[in-house]
Nucleic acid binder design. Structure first.
Lengths: 173, 173
DNA sequence: ACAGGAAACGTTATATCATGACAAGAGCAG
DNA sequence: CTGCTCTTGTCATGATATAACGTTTCCTGT
């Protein structure tokens, strides 16, 4: 509810992040700064535990379970009980800084900081690696069916299961 | 947009199942018969507990948690422990007779018995009702991105969250 | 018919994921 | 400073899912 609408198809999304290497330090810093700016603009409290949670997810750059995140937060001096992690995640999810991978019951930092988008994920069934891509607007066919049924779509989860390049090479070669 | 489960001719052929009424007795029987035929053709064992699990999901015609299904199976004389339900569900999932709704951690009988398809679901955030639609082939845009990354897609989960007609009317009116 | 093997079933126990409820502290408007 | 709201931390519990193992069932080869 706190995000402005900025729906636009076809941004630079032909290369899903996640299966490539990149300047990670910078990508973490950029995302943290963007989150902080967003919170200041919206009057949200980017508290230490929230910031720490986001930083951990950004640094790991992979889907992480809530309890694993909780361990890291606890190591960093925060509380040790599940609600500590889940509440931070709730905040980050609500503001689009992280996404939940339903298939894995895990969470991943958003790869497109700042952009309001409809994410799609590529999930490797062998190693659970996750890459985020821009969602193809499912508004087309599915949207038609939904309208015909009187169903109002608010959000669409798209998760493609398959084999990532690394695992394909490992088993194929 | 093809539908097989609602076999009544001339009615609501463009609506995704789930938000419409229909001849349920017949739809259950048809689906059970189709499943049985499929198993016989494939040399699979359509055992009593598997059949019972499918029948329960078909009759309920809604997304059901594994433990709720387990209760029903137990009432029907089967074992009372979680693996009883999860193993039946594994079989039914593997053969396309039921689908898992990741978002709800729940299971629903397939609405297109016999058809090899890529389902998409409309999930009401207010009442958890679920309707199954044919998936718009997300192969297009997402498939391109996947290929570019060297990712081989095997299956795609599509779950649209929103408000069903009944809940929209209830809150809107 | 029957022995051997694979698959399925039921059980106990445990692992994993998530939330309810409540008290104490932090930040802000009046 | 006071009252209010939001946030944090805690304990406790609920909800979802799987591991491991012995027994039964079914199929197959003889």
């Amino acid at each position: 509810m706190t995000r402005a609408a900025d729906t636009r198809p076809g941004q630079a999304a032909t290369k899903p992040l996640g299966f490539v290497t990149h300047d990670h330090e910078q990508c973490v810093d950029t995302a943290l700064a963007a989150a902080q700016a967003h919170c200041e603009a919206e009057g949200l409290r980017f508290t230490p535990v929230r910031r720490a949670a986001l930083e951990i997810l950004l640094r790991e750059h992979r889907a992480m379970g809530a309890y694993e995140l909780l361990d890291r937060l606890h190591e960093a001096g925060f509380g040790a009980q599940p609600p500590v992690a889940y509440r931070a995640l709730d905040f980050l999810l609500a503001n689009g800084f992280v996404h939940k991978i339903e298939r894995l019951n895990a969470f991943v930092a958003c790869a497109h900081p700042g952009a309001d988008h409809s994410p799609a994920f590529l999930i490797c069934s062998k190693c659970d690696a996750v890459a985020e891509a821009e969602s193809p607007r499912t508004r087309g066919t599915l949207g038609d069916a939904a309208r015909a049924a009187g169903f109002r779509i608010e959000r669409t989860v798209v998760e493609a299961l398959g084999v990532c390049p690394a695992c394909a090479e490992r088993s194929g070669a």
